[in-house]
């Protein structure tokens, strides 16, 4: 083989956190960088779209794309990169499931523009374009990467934990590639690797993280926090629960959980109590359930565009 394998890293509608997450690899990053040539990475090297267009088809060994698809330009770029790449990796929760920006799908594109730019906002239309075509040319909805191009692998997480990034590079550099569609995380739930002790208590109240200094040993769900560990893939070493913060589901659901939010509704409904079960407790149980603030934002923090999400009209 002539020269090192070329890789590209691209961002669409992301926050930049995924680009920074590579640094978390620490010293092993130097080994990785020594073995590849970075052909394109807007956060790091000065190559432009025209340079990518000049690449031969499939000349990039792998392209890692982070961010949700939010603009027409995002879509054009990922198609271009797909054509130039042997492998495309959805890197991070946005590319994988839609991510936090995907919560904008709760409102329409027009409402999003209104809220961001304010009523009566005006951006000059591009030459020869209509006012409606003015930047940023938002798509009607935020979309995960797989809605536009074939995704070979997924490195999940917000941002991906270094251990999982390491698994990707191990596979890419050794040539020992997993089957297409592989997600570089565990198939088992996060609870499997969480050191906290679960006692299967019932939930008599639901608290948000800022309302409680949790017991350091006990399960956070037992303490009334909405921890999505039961429906979320492991692989991060339960980093958040270890630090006293509930899992918010960034690695995405386990293959068996199905729709993570609906699965979690089932689980929560089973746990909630307000005294003995029965008609006399209905109002109390509803009050406990209603103390879950923002069910959609809590249960689909990273995954709304991939599941039940359908935007409102108008």
């Amino acid at each position: 083989m002539v020269g090192k394998p070329k890789i590209a890293v691209y961002w669409t509608g992301g926050c930049g956190g995924c680009d920074v997450s590579f640094l978390e690899l620490g010293a092993p990053l130097l080994d990785v960088l020594a073995k590849v040539e970075i052909a394109f990475w807007p956060a790091l090297v000065d190559a432009k779209r025209a340079d990518v267009e000049a690449f031969a088809p499939r000349s990039l060994a792998a392209t890692l794309i982070n961010g949700t698809l939010r603009t027409e330009e995002n879509v054009e770029m990922v198609h271009l990169l797909r054509e130039k790449s042997q492998l495309v990796v959805a890197f991070g929760a946005c590319a994988h499931l839609g991510g936090v920006p995907g919560l904008a799908n709760l409102v329409s594109r027009e409402e999003t523009l209104r809220r961001v730019y304010g009523d009566g906002f005006a951006i000059a239309p591009p030459p020869g374009g209509e006012a409606d075509d003015a930047p940023p040319n938002l798509l009607p909805q935020a979309q995960p990467l797989s809605t536009e191009v074939t995704v070979d692998y997924v490195v999940p997480g917000c941002p991906p934990p270094p251990a999982l990034i390491g698994l990707l590079f191990d596979a890419l550099l050794s040539g020992d590639l997993p089957p297409a569609g592989h997600v570089f995380a565990h198939d088992k739930a996060l609870c499997e690797e969480c050191p906290r002790t679960r006692e299967d208590r019932v939930l008599t109240k639901i608290v948000r993280p800022h309302e409680l200094v949790p017991d350091p040993e006990a399960c956070l769900l037992d303490q009334g926090m909405i921890c999505l560990g039961p429906v979320t893939r492991g692989g991060c070493g339960a980093a958040c629960p270890k630090a006293g913060m509930p899992c918010t589901g960034c690695l995405g659901p386990t293959p068996h959980a199905g729709d993570p939010g609906l699965a979690m509704i089932s689980a929560l409904a089973s746990l909630v109590r307000a005294g003995d079960e029965g008609e006399a407790s209905f109002a109390g149980e509803d009050a406990v359930l209603d103390s879950l603030v923002d069910p959609v934002g809590t249960l689909y923090k990273y995954s709304l565009p991939s599941y039940v999400a359908k935007r409102r009209s108008g």
């Binding site: 939010g261 509704i265 079960e277 029965g278 149980e285 359930l289 069910p295 359908k310 935007r311």
Partner: peptide, 30 residues
């Protein structure tokens, strides 16, 4: 009916699930 569930408390569980589901549906515009 409450108190009549063949499995003692399955209907109570259903009620709590539906309560949460309905809250989510309104957020989703259904």
């Amino acid at each position: 009916h409450p108190g009549d569930c063949h499995y003692v408390s399955g209907n109570y569980k259903a009620r709590r699930r539906v309560h949460l589901l309905k809250r989510m549906l309104s957020e989703l515009g259904i």
